[in-house]
Design a binder for these strands. Structure first.
Lengths: 144, 144
DNA sequence: TGCCGTAGTCACCCAAAGGTAAGAAATGGC
DNA sequence: GCCATTTCTTACCTTTGGGTGACTACGGCA
């Protein structure tokens, strides 16, 4: 029952989660807020966004082509698009140096850092349970 | 520099993160593992999967149509698809009762519960920073 | 003179995601 | 005998995501 990962969070998060889970009646929260949260999650829980977030968290400030090189498989178009969107959402800053050839630096904002931290638990989960999931798939595919 | 949220995590996670970050040479981790983790994240970080995960975590066991009713906007096709995939990944169990009309119950496995817990931080983040993101967007859209 | 490198934008195209709607199977109730 | 109910599956179609490759601006350098 006791989830091995739940002590991963701050006491006040736990308190909030408890509050959230404790209300037996389905009076969760304002459905408008819930919809907004869902939208936000949908926007954020995107493959490229997560990878860029991770990379910048790890490496600090990077310029466009460096990110492109290190996020494997991303096209220039998707990189631009992802960075623009993250900038719009306030997750990173884009600093243009007026030199030639152009130089643009990207770095996470505190908001971006906090999102990265929020996702840390998910990365840890994925690392830890990779093999469990793989085994489950094999089992599922084997039965008929 | 010090991330205000990093004390959110376990000591061993911090140690792991430190190890991860301390290696100045780009010898992060096995690139094969990293690719697998990225794949897994990509599969899991899906809008419908997250919503179903949340719902089942909150409500316990539910049957097909109940989930369909409560996950707003999901089509029957996507619901079936999402549930099948989650079952394959070992996140939930699907119990068919051989009655007529059919009755199928869905419930999270412990693995599903642990994933839900791992995402808890993200939901909390989204709730807390909804307005910050909204404000950032307004600011971004206003400048030209 | 002309090529290089950076950080894009733009136009075009294809593949995949996802919506809609119809049908299937089985049986208790009218 | 027929209809409703539930959990799907399948076929078809539209929308979106995302790749590719051409193009630009600019100054330094050969």
């Amino acid at each position: 029952m006791a989830n091995p990962l739940e002590n991963r969070f701050h006491a006040d998060d736990i308190a909030q989660a408890d509050h959230y889970l404790a209300t037996d009646p389905p009076a969760d929260l304002d459905p408008r807020v819930e919809r907004l949260v869902n939208d936000l999650i949908g926007r954020i829980a995107d493959k490229w966004t997560l990878l860029v977030l991770e990379l910048l968290e790890e490496k600090g400030t990077l310029r466009f082509t460096e990110i492109g090189r290190q996020v494997e498989g991303i096209s220039q178009k998707m990189l631009t698009q992802t960075l623009r969107q993250m900038e719009r959402d306030g997750l990173l800053t884009r600093t243009v140096h007026p030199v030639v050839p152009p130089r643009v630096d990207y770095a996470l904002t505190p908001l971006g850092n906090s999102l990265s931290a929020a996702f840390c638990g998910v990365w840890v989960w994925a690392e830890r349970n990779l093999e469990t999931v793989e085994a489950a798939r094999v089992r599922f595919d084997a039965r008929d």
